[in-house]
Design a protein around this nucleic acid. Structure first.
Length: 469
RNA sequence: GUGGCUAUAGUUUAGUGGUAAAACUGUGGUUUGUGGUACCGCUAUCGAGAGUUCGAUUCUCUCUAGCCACCCCA
């Protein structure tokens, strides 16, 4: 109780003080704010995040690069619903994987259908491929997507429950060139954004080859059983391929000596893999063979790869993206046997890595410079200004303005912050004369121009080609 | 899901058992039509709830969130 009384008293004092020198404006503005303070505010759900305008400089170019690459490599945009039947993911990703067993957002729809928010998009792409009879289209069928995915994992930096991926999938192209093409797309994505990456690559062969290899792997690890960490002893029974993921120090030596899957591949599989590598060599894409790379989703065959930030210091979550071949999935999902390769990149992680990389190297994302600031004085001028602003848009001039500001000083300050080369000033006098002032922000030299000639004059000053002359 | 650390203005940080400081940002102003400086205002129920206490932002507990490692993955 005493707390509240004190506070109220303080406020009254403040208001009185303010009312004296200024007008009634401020006290009017303050009251609603004060009453709002008592209201509850809402927070985000755990693991959710807003993408804010301050990060637009990352998200916008990412989308631009992603869609440019898609256009260049002839991927068609696929947009699928966020909600899908739960079985779609259970069958494709596979039971026993963490994604399916622990991380999916699932619920029962009002009609009792078991529904799931997509944890990834390859399965949905396969579904769409089959559903729309895309095997009847000229092959290969190339699809790309961009959108939110949902995984109920424990959040960490660069790891969210709703996160975004961009992905590319190629159907009906069995040749190693398809694998290489996708890796090239990923490589170019980061190259264009200015982030050095490295590719880790491996081959899982066919399921039969993998089974043979697993037997050998288990035999090997059994012989070392007493030296293994507890976790690995479990893996030995549950998921032997994951033994290769172990980070325990005591298991590292054992891991290094472990049989490598590449030696268990048949001639055909080996040949496929070698050809992929040859393509990468030809393209000059650096890669590292990684015999321990196995991937968490069950549908992969042959080539698998992951994309890491080249600078190991940069991020905890440094796996930016991953992909691989899934030649059997389309058939498994009820379609005609169709070879396929896919790849997905994590966007939040890419932003995080880019930020850290840029900070480390004192680099900034390129942005389109503003060419002119339009300043206005008075209500009359504001009316004209909004029109001028619109005309300048048609003139193709990148401008900034702020109708909220009334003083010229404040507006020029903004112009200065934006490092705009020119300011266009419209006041009462200019409204009457139908003119505008163009101020060179560097020299301070001003020129009075007819409002109708604003676009050509500005263009000339900006060194732009003016097609009206 | 397991373990650990953290939680003060929009941001980054001080600080104290007696309700809080600074920088930056934002906003208004320093003769109401001119910027890059300078100066002066304004902006925090000290994450939420409970407990201990005359009194807590400061101590304890619970919760929540973030971060780190594991797990997993993008």
């Amino acid at each position: 109780m005493p707390k509240k009384e004190k506070k109220i008293q303080i406020k009254k004092v403040e208001v009185k003080k303010i009312v004296k020198p200024v007008k009634g404006k401020i006290s009017k503005e303050k009251d609603p704010q004060a009453s709002e303070r008592g209201k509850k505010t809402f927070n985000l759900l755990r693991g959710m995040h807003d993408v804010l305008p301050k990060d637009e400089k990352y998200w916008k170019p990412m989308y631009q690069v992603a869609s440019d690459l898609a256009a260049h490599f002839q991927f068609g945009r696929l947009e699928t619903p966020i909600l899908e039947e739960i079985g779609l993911f259970v069958r494709s990703i596979g039971k026993g994987t963490d994604v399916v067993d622990k991380e999916m957002y699932t619920f029962e729809d009002k009609d009792g259908t078991k529904v799931c928010m997509r944890p990834e998009l390859t399965a949905a792409a396969v579904r769409a491929f089959i559903m729309h009879g895309m095997w009847n289209m000229p092959q290969p069928v190339k699809l790309w997507y961009w959108g939110p995915m949902f995984r109920h994992d424990r959040p960490q930096a660069g790891r969210y429950r709703q996160f975004h991926q961009v992905g590319y999938e190629t159907f009906g192209h069995a040749d190693p060139s398809a694998d290489a093409e996708l890796i090239l797309v990923a490589f170019n994505f980061y190259k264009d954004l200015g982030l050095p990456i490295e590719i880790h690559i491996n081959s899982l062969g066919t399921p039969a080859e993998r089974t043979n290899y697993k037997v050998e792997l288990v035999n090997y690890y059994r012989s070392k059983r007493s030296y293994l960490c507890e976790e690995c002893r479990n893996r030995l029974v549950k998921n032997p391929m994951r033994l290769l993921d172990c980070k325990e120090e005591r298991c590292q030596g054992i891991k290094e000596e472990a049989p490598q899957i590449i030696n268990w591949l048949g001639a055909e599989s080996k040949n496929h893999f070698m050809k992929v590598l040859e393509y990468l060599d030809e393209l000059g894409i650096p890669y590292q063979l990684d015999s321990t790379l196995v991937r968490g989703l069950n549908y992969y065959t042959h080539t698998v790869f992951e994309i890491y930030v080249a600078d190991a210091e940069i991020s905890a979550q440094n796996a930016l993206g991953a992909g691989g071949r899934y030649d059997l999935l389309v058939e498994e999902m009820g379609g005609r046997p169709t070879p396929a390769v896919g790849m997905a990149l994590g966007l939040e992680r890419s932003v995080l890595a880019l930020k850290q990389y840029n900070e480390k190297h004192n680099r900034e994302m390129p942005k389109v410079p503003t060419e002119a600031f339009v300043a206005q004085l008075g209500e009359e001028a504001r009316r004209i200004t909004l029109k001028v602003i619109d005309e300048l848009r048609f003139g193709g001039i990148k401008i900034a303005f702020n109708l909220c500001k009334t003083s010229l000083k404040a507006q020029l300050e903004l112009a200065d912050n934006l490092k705009v080369p020119f300011a266009v000033i419209i006041g009462q006098k200019e409204v009457q004369d139908g003119t505008a002032i163009i101020r060179d922000m560097e020299s301070g030299i001003q020129e009075i121009v007819d409002q109708k000639k604003l676009i050509p004059v500005l263009k000339r000053k900006l060194g732009k080609f003016d097609d009206k002359r």
